[in-house]
């Protein structure tokens, strides 16, 4: 069953796109204030660097993720973390999905 439930379209548009939902889901594994390196995240999500950058920028604009450029020794590193706001949005989103699912299963 893949038809679109009308109530689904009312969900948070920032993370409702499949790619951004995947990014935020992966980042939600990190504990508060922890960040993951860009290449690790990219590999885990199996996205191209360009594609991931585009989605990270949209998430950054919404204040859901924070992207920091830093150095590990001499090598530059890009770190990505979920902000408090992003974590809340993710939790609201999953709660909304579960709420949609429950009445559907009772039918």
């Amino acid at each position: 069953m893949t038809e679109i439930d009308p109530r689904v379209t009312e969900l948070d548009p920032v993370i409702h796109a499949q790619a951004r939902l995947r990014v935020v889901s992966a980042l939600s594994v990190l504990r508060d204030d922890d960040s993951v390196t860009f290449p690790r995240l990219q590999e885990s999500l199996r996205m191209t660097a360009g594609n991931l950058s585009v989605h990270l920028r949209k998430l950054e604009d919404a204040g859901y993720v924070e992207v920091t450029k830093t150095h590990h020794g001499r090598t530059p590193a890009t770190l990505v973390r979920l902000t408090r706001r992003g974590r809340l949005a993710f939790e609201d989103y999953t709660a909304a999905l579960r709420a949609l699912l429950d009445p559907l299963e009772e039918q």
Partner: peptide, 12 residues
């Protein structure tokens, strides 16, 4: 991949 998923179970 910019298209939203239609089904909550799939999303979860």
């Amino acid at each position: 991949d910019d298209v939203p998923l239609g089904n909550p179970a799939e999303s979860l």
